[in-house]
Structure formats: structure tokens, C-alpha cells
Write a protein that binds this DNA or RNA. Structure first.
Length: 428
RNA sequence: GGAGGAAUGGCCGAGUGGUUGAAGGCGGCGGUCUUGAAAACCGUUAUGCUCGGAAGGGCAUCGGGGGUUCGAAUCCCUCUUCCUCCGCCA
């Protein structure tokens, strides 16, 4: 959420910057709500001051044994009026909060301006797409023959877009998780957590998945619980309503969790294989930083995620989101796109964002600057490091052989008991 | 699931209707002392909103919400969380 004080004083600038991402800020409504609010506050505070001074006076008069009946009745009416004003004000502030909570974050000034993903800008590339002396297959053709993926049975168990990995496929998934977590915890300084896989609406509001994106979530019936769409939600909310000590910053967490997304509105997109699923595993990186540190922390976060792909020797590129393609809460974000031979394209495998104080304000996450300054909002950042299911696809497709087997990348072999190649197998 | 108890500032902890935004302690910050440090001593130290150019005012906040009252940290109702005991399950 944006700072309402900033909005009040820089309404035109905010309107302008938000227009770069295709958001039309209703300046008139905001001005009207804001001035109504001010009027009510002034009137209410005037009456409360009257009530406070009169109460003191009544206490004094009682001591002096003076009759206060009239004064009391007078104040009773004032009290009634205060109650009415407070109720109206409460309703109005809710309205303002609702209004503000669906305004997206301001894009950073160094983000390329553009409304569509065509205007995203590639910033760097690693590796070359592998040259095959045969026609490489997509994973949905390759994997059933290997017996490591069974989508028909997954659909039977649940429905479409759920994964069922088997044998070496299942072990590859687990190896990837352990490999990624080891890199981030042992080498990149992240602490590992295992958070709840369901979160309440307050938490989802904090990361701004609610109220605007409820249709993307699975909700547990008759509860206030949602299946998490990413570990970002529970991990960011670890510090909701907390005040962190300065010397603890930056705090860096990593967590592997299943992610559940309803993918409403994506029908007809990526329908084959396991690229877009209702459930997938993801290793997430989350940082809480001082405001002045967040731009550089975003750069290092992206590098931390890239390192996983480098070690797996998977070709990728890094793309910066244009203003209009960045997520609702992001001020700036990079995607990492891995090369998928089966699609002959670079596809998203990680998204890394700086939210600045946008989530921190919603979730009320603050820190106390050393040297005794005022409590300030932290900046939050996060990124995938990486989406495990998509990494799984990338390995299978990039490391496939002419005979349909898949070579295991060197760095993963210790995690697979020395396995070097995935051969056809039947475990289901 | 049943029965009790508790929730106060960054932390600990007083406080049962009228200068209590809140004693005291710890911690933090500034200072005195010291070659330096520690100790000791002195001072200072919440957040949000609002008025103001500023100085400085005002309002709200003692887990959340509601109620009683001229007036609530304090009384009542309710919700949440935590603790103890019993039961159940792993």
C-alpha cells in the first residue's frame, strides 16, 4: 500500500507514475474522501477535548459538593454526538483503506516504461541453448516414456494440472530442493524456515494477494485459511506487526514449500505438461532490509537465484519487467527465464522483486534504526530460487539424450546417490 | 473437548473509576567522571492522527471489538492468543 501522506501531497505525481503501469488513479474520489475525513476528525476532536475538560471540571465540582446534574446531562449529549461522528469516521476510513489497498505500487524510476511484456528488457544471458543432433522432445513427450511423470493418474486423483512424479522423477525433485536449499543456506547466508502451508486473510493482505487477487487462491471452506500461493506469504508475515532491531538487518530467509494457485483465467495457456500447475514446489528467498539497502539487495537476490542455474549449467537470461508488466506490489522486478528446448523458448523460472515499503506498510513490519531514530518501515524483497517444478522440466529437456534418457547434471549426482542418468523405469 | 488463570510501553513489571501516556527496573540514547573503558551519577527515551511556518498544542492508543459512565488500563459482555490441569489422539 502506498503512503497516504505521500499520496495526499503528491497526488499528481502519483497519478502520473501509476499511469505508466496502466493504472488510472481516481484523483477526485481520493480528494473527496480525504477532505471528508479531515472534517470529521476536526469536529470529533473538538468535542472530545470539550468532554475531557468538562470531566475534569465535574470531578472538581463533586469534590466541592456542587450539583453537577445539568453539566452531566450536557456531556451525555456530547458523548452521543462523539459516538455518531466516530462511527461515520470509521466507515469512511474503511472506505479510504479499501480505496488505497487496490492501488498498485509505484514503479521505480529506473524501470523501463511500457505497458506490455514486449517492453521488458533483457539485461543479461548465461550459456547457450544446447545444440542437439536430433529433434529434442518436450517433457510431456519425454517423461511418460521414462516412467517418471504420470499426469493421467494425477488427474484421476485430483484433477487436471496436478503433478504425480515417480521413481527417479520424484527423487530428482527432492534432490533439486536439497541442492537449492544447500546453496542458499550454506553459501548465500539465508536461514531456512518451514512455514505453515496455509495462511489467513490478514497475512494474504500483507503481501497484497488480497483483496485484489482472491480468484488466484484456493480457500479452505468455512475457514479464514487459504492454501499459500508461494512461501512469500507465510515467510514475509513472520514479522508482521514486529519491530526488528537494526543490527539484525538484512534478515534473509529461504523456504521450500508447495505452492497452490488456482490459475483462474489461464485456461488454454501451457496446458501440456507440468509447466503451469495448481500445485508445485518452490524454493523461495525473502529479505527484510533497511530502505537504503533494498536496491542493491535486489541485485544480489537475483544473483543468488541465478547461481542455481549456473551450477546446473542451464542456459538462461535475465529480463527486467517494464512498468506495466511488474506485479501489483513490486516497485521493480526481474524475471529469470530458463531455456526450454521443448518449447524453443526462454520461460520464466524465477521472479525477483523489490517491494520497497509497500508490503511492509500493509503488514506493519518495522525496524528501529541504530542511533535512536524513529521506527521506520523495512523494505521487503523476494524471489524464487527457484521454482522446483520448472527446474525439473529444464533439466529433463536440456539434458535429454537421443535415446530418450536424461543425464543428471554433475552437481546433483551427490544428491541422487551418484545416479548419472535417468533410464526408463516402471514404478507405478 | 472440559475446568481454571493470564494479556500493560523495546523488555520485565506496578497499577481495580477522576493530572495514569501510565510508578519502578532493565535496555537504548546524551552527558558528568575517567588516559580509555567499566562502575556510579544526571538527563532523556512510545506510536498513530491532527492543528501550526516553527515553537508548541489537541485527539486516540494498556491483546481485538462492543457496552456501562459526565469520565475506563481499572467495571460488564464478547472474540483472540498464551499458560496450567483433565480428557482424547499421534
Amino acid at each position: 500500500m502506498l503512503d497516504l501522506a505521500y499520496l495526499r501531497e503528491n497526488l499528481e505525481e502519483a497519478r502520473q507514475r501509476l499511469s505508466h503501469r496502466g493504472f488510472v488513479l481516481d484523483v477526485e474520489t481520493f480528494r473527496r474522501l480525504d477532505s471528508e475525513r479531515k472534517n470529521l476528525i476536526h469536529e470529533g476532536e473538538r468535542l472530545k477535548q470539550l468532554r475531557n475538560t468538562s470531566s475534569e471540571e465535574i470531578a472538581r465540582l463533586i469534590k466541592e459538593k456542587v450539583d453537577v446534574t445539568e453539566k452531566r446531562n450536557e456531556m451525555k449529549a456530547v458523548g452521543q454526538r462523539i459516538k455518531e461522528i466516530d462511527e461515520t469516521l470509521g466507515t469512511l476510513e474503511e472506505e479510504i483503506y479499501r480505496f488505497a489497498s487496490i492501488i498498485p505500487n509505484l514503479p521505480d524510476t529506473d524501470v523501463p516504461i511500457g505497458l506490455t511484456e514486449d517492453q521488458n528488457v533483457e539485461v543479461r544471458r548465461f550459456g547457450q541453448p544446447p545444440a542437439f543432433d536430433f529433434e529434442p522432445k518436450a517433457h510431456w513427450d519425454l517423461c511418460p516414456a521414462l516412467g517418471i511423470l504420470d499426469l493421467e493418474r494425477a488427474t484421476k486423483i485430483t484433477g487436471s494440472r496436478f503433478p504425480l512424479l515417480a521413481g527417479a522423477g520424484a527423487r530428482l525433485e527432492r534432490a533439486l530442493i536439497n541442492f537449492m536449499l544447500d546453496v542458499h543456506t550454506k553459501e548465500h547466508g539465508y536461514s531456512e524456515v518451514v512455514p505453515p502451508f496455509m495462511a489467513n486473510s490478514r497475512s494474504l493482505f500483507g503481501t497484497s494477494n488480497l483483496p485484489k487477487f482472491e480468484e488466484d487462491l484456493f480457500k479452505v471452506k468455512d475457514t479464514d485459511y487459504y492454501l499459500i500461493p508461494t512461501a512469500e506469504v507465510p515467510v514475509t508475515n513472520i514479522y508482521r506487526d514486529d519491530i526488528l532491531e537494526d543490527d539484525r538487518l538484512p534478515v534473509k530467509f529461504t523456504a521450500c514449500t508447495p505452492c497452490f494457485r488456482s490459475e483462474a483465467g489461464s485456461y488454454g495457456k501451457d496446458v501440456r505438461g507440468v509447466f503451469r500447475q495448481h500445485q508445485f514446489n518452490k524454493v523461495e528467498l525473502v529479505k527484510f532490509t533497511r530502505p537504503e539497502d533494498s536496491p542493491l539487495e535486489l541485485e544480489s537476490l537475483v544473483k543468488d537465484a541465478e547461481e542455481v542455474l549456473k551450477r546446473l549449467r542451464l542456459p538462461y537470461r535475465v529480463v527486467i519487467h517494464a512498468t506495466g508488466d511488474a506485479g501489483f506490489a513490486a516497485a521493480k522486478s526481474y524475471d529469470i527465464e530458463v531455456w526450454l528446448p521443448g518449447q524453443n523458448a526462454y520461460r520464466e523460472i524465477s521472479s525477483c522483486s523489490n517491494f520497497r515499503d509497500f508490503q511492509a506498510r500493509r503488514a506493519n513490519i518495522r525496524y528501529r534504526p541504530s542511533g535512536g531514530g524513529k521506527v521506520r518501515l523495512v523494505h521487503t524483497l523476494n524471489g524464487s530460487g527457484l521454482a522446483v517444478g520448472r527446474t525439473w522440466i529444464a533439466i529433463v529437456e536440456n539434458y535429454q539424450q537421443k535415446d530418450g534418457t536424461v543425464v543428471i547434471p554433475d552437481v546433483l549426482r551427490p544428491y541422487l546417490n551418484g545416479m548419472t542418468v535417468i533410464k526408463p523405469q516402471k514404478v507405478i
